[in-house]
Design a binder for these strands. Structure first.
Lengths: 157, 157
DNA sequence: TATTGTTATACTCTATAACTATA
DNA sequence: TATAGTTATAGAGTATAACAATA
């Protein structure tokens, strides 16, 4: 993968075309994350709060597991979950199997909110992708998958 | 662009394959941004600080222009620049043309640091992209460009 | 002793509103 | 009046270190 020119951290991800694959990936990531942050903000949430709710859609994790998923210290989780709890989005439940542990779960309000966010992510990122034809979207998905799975399996150089 | 299933905010961007283009874009963005944040952290910087330095590589903007580039309020800029200044990375200079304005510039230390970061972004994102062949990297760059330029020109639906 | 989670503390980052100084 | 920037204030997010309770 030849990608010579150093040119990181685009102030404005769309001002000039990416000249390398690396530039393209970096600029694209800022574009997507910006849109995700805007969606979160529309619901008066931060991106990290939306990610927290997203995890809870199909899991009932403890604080350590949450911290691992979000790549945060366990002490950071306390505040994150407490703020979500105060907004009525999640609940702490005592773990039945471990007196030390708790399980974090979505409330009905939290479930509704995260589903709304999921819908909007779907819709608004799809809009960003409208310049691509169906075939190009498929290509992009396949390329991204190749990149993501290699990373997930830990088989990078 | 058919992208039916709602499935946002991946807790772990690499645990399961993206089933849609939207999923692919979202997961990819988390992978890239995570790597960028790690690079910044290696230099005891936040991502926003690296972005600030990145802008200053080829510009000498005022605070309002910086705020516009970073999508922040002007009041947020004051602290950002002050912290960078305290670390000896940037300087405030009085604008010669406008007694109210200041110009923010990189110090030699800031220049060195941002160049190092740029190198590492280049190197480490390129490593993430190693699963792709040269041809695939080119494809990805072209697809991303198509997406980014449409966004930059404001011609999305 | 080791593990799970919280607390205390300190710092960065962010926005809103009010302010100063210059245009 | 309008613009460039700062200050005051409040709050979210984060990590480190020390702690309590349970295993």
């Amino acid at each position: 993968m030849p990608t010579p020119t150093p040119m990181p951290t685009p102030d404005d991800p769309a001002l000039d075309e990416p000249h390398t694959t690396v530039d393209a990936l970096v600029q694209l990531s800022f574009l997507i994350q910006g849109e995700l942050a805007r969606i979160a903000a529309d619901h008066d949430l931060s991106l990290i709060q939306v990610r927290l709710l997203g995890i809870l859609r199909d899991r009932r994790p403890g604080m350590l597991e949450l911290a691992r998923h979000l790549d945060l210290d366990k002490s950071s989780m306390t505040g994150l979950v407490t703020r979500a709890e105060k907004r009525g989005l999640v609940r702490r439940e005592r773990s039945p199997h471990d007196g030390r542990g708790i399980l974090v779960t979505l409330t009905p309000a939290g479930t509704t909110l995260v589903n709304t966010c999921a819908q909007q992510v779907q819709a608004r990122i799809a809009i960003l992708a409208t310049p691509l034809t169906t075939r190009e979207g498929d290509q992009l998905r396949l390329l991204a998958t190749k990149l993501l799975t290699a990373h997930g399996e830990g088989l990078l150089p």
